[in-house]
Amino acid sequence: MKSKTKRKLQPYLFISPFFILYAIFGLYPTVSGFALSLQDKAGQFTMSNYQKVFADQRFWKAISNAAVYMMGSIFIILPVALIAALMLNSKYMGKKSGIVSTIFFLPNVTSVIVIGIVFKLVLRVNNGLLNTALQTLHMIDRPIKFLSDPFWAMPSILLIGTWRFFGVNSLYFLSGLQGIPAELGEAARIDGAGKWKEFWYITLPLLKPIMTYIVFMAITGSFAMFGEVLTLVQNGSSVGSRDSMLFPVIYLYNSMFKNNQSNRAAAMGYVIAVILLLITSVQRWLFRDKD
């Protein structure tokens, strides 16, 4: 082979392992899943799987649950993470910020199964940690059925989400904060800006790039919720009272594996993907750089 041709081919060879693996494990299942979603059980072309998904109230309940969780992620988990990041970035933390960051990061590397089991113990009705604490403090008369009562199911999952994800998100925010030039803050202070104005007009706008990423991850993570809920319900034959813990991926999994509706599950996967695409497009539009 001529050395010129060899040189031309070399870069493609170097990047080929990723593309080969992606083609096998990413592209092929994607295309195959799409084909599956357009077939009935006899393998004939049909659009009925999509019609059934669109007409399925439980599917929309799952989407609505994911949307509620997503809002919770954005308006509860992320603000908590931002506060933690601001705390870590403050001069008062000094050398302690490293160890505190490590502690914050630990929930993110904890197995989701372990988290589910531990929180099940925390949230249980009889002798659950949270119920015992609330009763000891005389804040409630009778134990709250956190996982059974539809009113409490979503806050319970959000509690777990907050514990699990605020740490890693705070580290993302921290990296964003550390990228903001100190001179900008100093200039603002010289111009008479207080702490709040500095945060609102300098820090927050400059955090937008990292926030775009964090919010994107929060949205996709909300729709991909699976392990925590599956562990919380344990026996797998329930998704909370009134489907209060039914999430899109769990519904997809149950349709495929519990009810053997593989074509419908494939269609569901594509509808979820399109919904996610729409939401993230809106998010990117909202976070666009207006300048």
Binding site: D149, S237, S238, N259
Partner: peptide, 17 residues
Amino acid sequence: ADWRYTFTETFNSNAYD
């Protein structure tokens, strides 16, 4: 019955109510 899972899941989802 192959619908047993659906039945059990539905029962459990409504047992609280």
